[in-house]
Structures are given as C-alpha cells and as structure tokens.
C-alpha cells in the first residue's frame, strides 16, 4: 500500500488578540491591541497508507481540528509540507477537494428545511457525476444506510442518527479517496453508532477509501482504527498501531488493596495515580513494564497483611488519558 497522505514538519500558528476584562480595557483595545501568537500545531510529521483507517486523537484544543483543516485545504500551514492524494491541499485546493469527503459532526452539509435528497443532487452538480451513475450510487448508499424514507423528509424532522447517515451519503457520493470524519458518532445511540461503524468498514473494503477519524469516543477507535495518532499541545505524542496501544494498556494494571494493618508507603517506581480511600484501602496504577505484579505483591505482603486485592487491566481510554497527562 502506498502513502496517500504525507505530512512533514507541519506547523500552524495564529495571531490572537488579547483583551482584559471590563469596559476600560475594551476602550483601550480600540487604540492599542495586544496580540499573542498561539502555536496550534508544532512540527507534526506522519504518513498514512491508502485504504487505512487512522484515528486522530487528542484532548480539546490539542491541535487535531487545525491539523484536519490543513489536510483538507481549509487552512494554510505556517510551515511544513502536506501532500494528500498527490496534491498540495491549500495551493491545489480546487482540484484536490474533488478527491476528498468530509463529515464534520457538528457542521451540517444538508439544508435544514429541505429533504436530504435535494442536497444529494447538489453533490451531483458539484462533482459533475453523470446522472445514471449518481442515481445508482445514491440509491445504493441510501439502501445500505437504511434511510429510504428518511431522505424524503425535511432534515429538521430527522433524528440525529438519521441526519448523520444522510451526511455520510453526502460525503461519499463522489467516491472520495480520503474521507475526514470529525466526531461522526457524537450524540448517537448504540444502534446508530454500530450502523455507521459498519458502513465505514464497508466503504473502506469496497472502495478502498482512506478514513481519518477524529473522535473522543474510544469505542469508535476500538472498532475502526488500525492505527492511532495522538496529538497533544500541537505535537504528536503517540503514533502506532491500535494493537501497540492495546499492548501498552495490557502492561498497565489498576490495583486496589485492602490491608489489615495501616497501609505502608506505596510510593515506588512503576506505581502512579495513588488514591488512599482509607488508612487500610488504596487504589493505584501499576506499570508492569517497570515493576512486575508478582514483585509488587511480594513487597506488599512483606510489609502488611493483605485482606483483599483486585487487579484489572487498564482500558485504552485510561492509557490515552495517561498519555495526555504525560
């Protein structure tokens, strides 16, 4: 598989006006304004293989959306290079956007007062899709996403799940090579989520579409992403397969101890996030790549009498949270 996206040393900074509180400051700002430079994305590099599904994660304000906006040609990078499907997204925007689709969960591409079917026809004109081909693609997508009746109802009358399915049709009608999904399952019920995830996998397998998925829903990542890129403070802090992330999760255990005598000192290498519930009970996180579970238990039993011990694997979500904090 070839690289469909190549990003090298990508950076983006914004000049942001600073204003203090109150009327006096508001009047002062008319004459002189203070500006600060916000570095949203710093020196980000990665490449993505054609036909893969990659999860782009990070806390709010981490730089994910800015990265996506640069990959879609909406924003120009301050420095660095981007090549998507052989195009420079910003300088070759008009030609490039023919090859991409985008679904911004909170920014609809449909008309609120009209049925979604009308918006689909806009896509036909916009991407110059021959009528017969358009009808066949449209009907296939409608059938696959099971919205045969819903597409004829005004968008304002649709449930969130139904609307998202219509947004998917809109984003995929022109058979894009790359699809950017920003929070595609936000606010959806479990059935709608499952349905949309199935559809993404179907599109990937059938059309070889590459999906870049931005989400806070770890289930989306778990079900879809083969690879995970985590961005925080504008830089890439993790870039590996989902199995590597899971492996990292397997190494970390959540431990809860209940002792007969007062708890000994728990501060030692490999032990973190210590929470003392009472003088006899505590929970913590144990990194078994630093301190094995066996050695930890041995140390504990040497210093106290254990009444109860609970050990569970840390979830991928917990690992990601740890990465955000590190």
């Amino acid at each position: 598989m070839v690289d469909i996206i190549r990003v090298q040393n990508l950076s983006k900074s914004f000049r942001v006006a600073k204003r203090k509180e109150g009327l006096k400051e508001a009047i002062k700002s008319i004459f002189s304004r203070e500006y600060t430079t916000k570095q949203a994305v710093k020196d980000v590099s990665f490449s993505i293989k054609e036909g893969s599904i990659v999860g782009l994660l990070g806390p709010n304000g981490a730089g994910k959306s800015t990265t996506i906006k640069m990959l879609t040609g909406i924003l120009s990078p301050s420095s660095g290079t981007v090549s998507c499907a052989g195009f420079n997204p910003f300088t070759q925007r008009k030609e490039y956007v023919r090859h991409i689709g985008a679904l911004f969960g909170q920014k609809s591409q449909l008309w609120w007062d009209l049925p979604a079917i009308d918006a689909f026809t806009l896509a036909q004109h916009l991407y110059d899709i021959p009528r017969a081909e358009f009808l066949s693609r449209r009907d296939d997508l409608i059938k696959r996403l099971r919205v045969e009746e819903e597409v004829y109802r005004p968008v304002r009358n649709l449930s969130l799940g139904e609307r998202m399915k219509c947004e998917f049709i809109m984003a995929l009608l022109h058979r894009p090579k790359i699809v950017f999904l920003d929070e595609p399952t936000i606010g959806l019920d479990v059935f709608a989520k499952e349905h949309i995830r199935e559809f993404i996998l179907y599109a990937q397998k059938t059309f070889g579409t590459t999906f870049i998925l931005t989400t806070h829903d770890m289930d989306d990542i778990d079900h879809l992403a083969q690879r995970v890129i985590i961005i925080n403070h504008g830089t890439v802090i993790f870039d590996d397969s989902l199995s590597a992330l899971r492996g990292q999760a397997n190494m970390v255990k959540n431990v809860r101890l209940v002792t007969q005598t007062r708890l000994p000192s728990l501060r030692q290498k490999g032990v973190s996030s210590i929470a003392r519930i009472s003088p006899y009970e505590a929970s913590m996180r144990l990194d078994t790549s630093i301190l094995s579970l066996q050695e930890f238990i041995t140390r504990m039993t040497q210093e106290t009498v254990l009444i109860d011990l609970e050990v569970s694997r840390a979830s991928v979500e917990e690992i990601i949270k740890q990465l955000y904090l590190s």
């Binding site: 040609g73 925007r93 030609e95 956007v97 991409i100 911004f104 920014k107 609809s108």
Partner: peptide, 12 residues
C-alpha cells in the same frame, strides 16, 4: 458559526 469550512470543500 464556523460553517464556512464546509463551503470551502466545494471543487470550485
């Protein structure tokens, strides 16, 4: 509203 982004995705 920030929805201008979606308009910038049109191949025109």
């Amino acid at each position: 509203k920030g929805t201008m982004d979606t308009w910038l995705l049109a191949p025109m």
